[in-house]
C-alpha cells in the first residue's frame, strides 16, 4: 500500500479528533455570531476532506526512510539534552549531545570527540562573553 494512503487516513483521524475536541470548547455568554467553535469546525472539515483526497488519490512515490533508527536515536539524544540543560549547566550536556550528533553524521570517534568539546567550549565563550547570554557553565549542584 502506498505511504500516502496511510498518511491520508492518519490526517482524517486527526481531523475527526480535532472536530471532536472542538465540540468541547466552552462558549461564553458574550459570544459573537460566529463564536469560538465555528472556525475550528471549518478547519477540521477541510482537513478531513483533504486527508480523504490524499488517501484516495495518493502520489505515486513511496515514502523512503533509510535509517529510522538513527533519527530516533538523534531525537532521543536531543530530548535528553533538553532535560539536562537546566540542571546540568551548559558545557557537559552540550559536549555530549553535539559529540553524539557528530558521530551520527560521520561515524569516527576522535573527530566526534573533538567536535563535541570544541563546540561546547566555543559556543559557550561566544554566547556568554561575546553575546552576553546568561548561561551556567557547570551543574548547579556542584556549587550548592
Amino acid at each position: 500500500m502506498k505511504s500516502d494512503r496511510y498518511f491520508g487516513l492518519f490526517i482524517v483521524v486527526v481531523a475527526l479528533a480535532f472536530i471532536a475536541s472542538a465540540t468541547q470548547i466552552q462558549t461564553s455568554f458574550l459570544a459573537d455570531p460566529v463564536g469560538p467553535k465555528t472556525f475550528p469546525f471549518i478547519l477540521g472539515m477541510v482537513l478531513a476532506v483533504c486527508g480523504l483526497y490524499v488517501a484516495l488519490r495518493p502520489d505515486e512515490e513511496q515514502m523512503r526512510v533509510q535509517s529510522i533508527g538513527k533519527v530516533a536515536f538523534a531525537a532521543a539524544v536531543l530530548v535528553g539534552y533538553a532535560y539536562s540543560l537546566r540542571p546540568g549547566g551548559f558545557l557537559i550536556p552540550t559536549a555530549i549531545a553535539s559529540g553524539l550528533i557528530s558521530y551520527q553524521i560521520s561515524p569516527r570517534v576522535v573527530p566526534a570527540l573533538i567536535t563535541g568539546l570544541a563546540l561546547s567550549v566555543g559556543l559557550f565563550l561566544l554566547f556568554k562573553f561575546a553575546l552576553g547570554l546568561g548561561l551556567f557553565a557547570w551543574p548547579r549542584a556542584w556549587f550548592g
Binding site: 540543560l85 549531545a97 553535539s98 557528530s102 553524521i105 566526534a112 570544541a118 563546540l119 548561561l135
Partner: peptide, 18 residues
Amino acid sequence: PWVLLPGVTMIAFVGIFS
C-alpha cells in the same frame, strides 16, 4: 557537515532556551 550540523542544533537549542 559533522561540525556544522551539531553546531546548528546547539545554537537552535540555546536560542529557544534563552
